[in-house]
Amino acid sequence: MADSFTNDDELQRLRDRLRATAWRQVVVLTGAGISVASGLPTYRGPGGLWTLREAEEVPDAAMAAREPSRVWSLFGPMRKHLRAAAPNAAHLALAEWESRPVPGRTFTLVTQNVDGLHTLAGSRNVVELHGSLLRTRCGNPKCGLPPFEDLTERVQAEPCERCGQPLRPDITLFDEPLPVDAEWAAKKALRECDLFLAVGTSGTVSPASNFVRGAKYAGAWTLLLNLTPMQPRHPDFDVEVLGRAEVLLPFLLGEEA
């Protein structure tokens, strides 16, 4: 059972431990909750996109094959919000933490988000598990057209200039496998992880929901920072911290004044 840290004294002890230990392999997993302060909604939290769409289909592999324009009608308009969004204090705290010169330490930031805000904040070793909504690719896996940067607010699927098949957002939909390179990089980092920090994630979407188990198997100290408690509590998290990421991460990870 995870310990919950909610008051100032407990948070200070947690901060002290994070600073005192010479972590060798840090893995951070982020979900949509870290971007709420940037004006972007969550997916499964209160008021989340999939909560609001309970009566509708969620975008999955079948929708992409059957109605590619339907996928664009859901995700294309979101690009307007991504263009207007800026990294918040939580993104910046993680980027600053990664940038500190710590001999022998490796740092991997694995994100389920498709908003590109970690890279914009300055994080370097970012693994995008679900791709990026700021890119477009061909829906034909045999086409060979590389994904390209695209901020167009498309609402209809357009044909690929190379093969004629419908273009699609470069994101992973429900019932689709993760990008091979991204999944490999995440699992490789977890194999030697000694500190695992999950931020702003519901912990219910596989396979990312199983990453904490891999980190725990490797002997890592495991922390969850989220606005709401995980239900049910995951036995492989040692610590659960409740609060806003943009407030807590600068405090927990920031250098002493």
Rank of each mutant, 00 (worst) to 15 (best):
22 A>C: 11
48 G>D: 09
20 A>P: 04
103 P>W: 11
61 A>Y: 12
243 G>F: 02
23 W>L: 07
249 L>Q: 01
234 H>T: 07
198 A>G: 03
207 P>K: 11
218 A>N: 05
109 L>Q: 03
119 T>K: 15
199 V>N: 05
125 N>G: 00
17 R>M: 10
40 L>C: 08
178 L>C: 12
257 A>M: 09
15 R>E: 01
191 R>S: 15
59 P>A: 11
251 F>W: 12
247 V>C: 04
224 L>N: 13
132 S>P: 05
187 K>N: 14
116 G>C: 03
160 C>R: 12
6 T>R: 13
239 V>D: 08
187 K>I: 13
63 M>V: 15
141 P>D: 08
31 G>A: 06
149 E>W: 08
112 Q>F: 07
13 R>M: 13
215 A>R: 03
230 M>C: 15
238 D>S: 08
111 T>P: 00
221 W>R: 11
222 T>L: 04
210 N>W: 15
77 P>R: 11
89 A>N: 12
228 T>F: 13
255 E>N: 09
57 E>Y: 06
109 L>F: 07
197 L>Q: 00
87 P>I: 02
111 T>M: 07
197 L>C: 07
168 R>W: 08
112 Q>S: 09
92 L>M: 11
113 N>L: 06
64 A>F: 08
45 G>F: 04
220 A>S: 04
166 P>S: 06
124 R>V: 12
37 A>K: 10
50 W>I: 02
251 F>D: 08
15 R>F: 05
142 K>L: 15
71 V>C: 07
102 V>I: 13
203 G>T: 09
96 E>G: 11
143 C>R: 09
97 W>Q: 06
59 P>Y: 02
102 V>H: 11
172 T>L: 05
226 N>Y: 00
120 L>M: 09
50 W>K: 01
85 A>E: 03
217 Y>V: 14
141 P>W: 11
242 L>C: 03
149 E>G: 11
15 R>A: 01
15 R>N: 04
34 I>C: 03
28 V>C: 01
131 G>H: 06
145 L>H: 02
216 K>R: 14
42 T>M: 02
127 V>Y: 00
171 I>R: 01
196 F>M: 04
202 S>N: 12
232 P>Q: 08
212 V>K: 00
150 D>P: 04
66 R>A: 14
152 T>R: 15
228 T>K: 10
76 G>L: 01
54 E>V: 13
43 Y>E: 04
64 A>M: 13
204 T>E: 13
172 T>H: 06
163 C>K: 07
154 R>Y: 10
84 A>S: 14
116 G>S: 09
190 L>H: 01
64 A>C: 02
18 L>E: 04
161 E>Y: 06
159 P>Y: 07
85 A>V: 02
46 P>T: 10
152 T>K: 10
15 R>D: 07
189 A>Y: 06
139 G>H: 04
74 L>H: 10
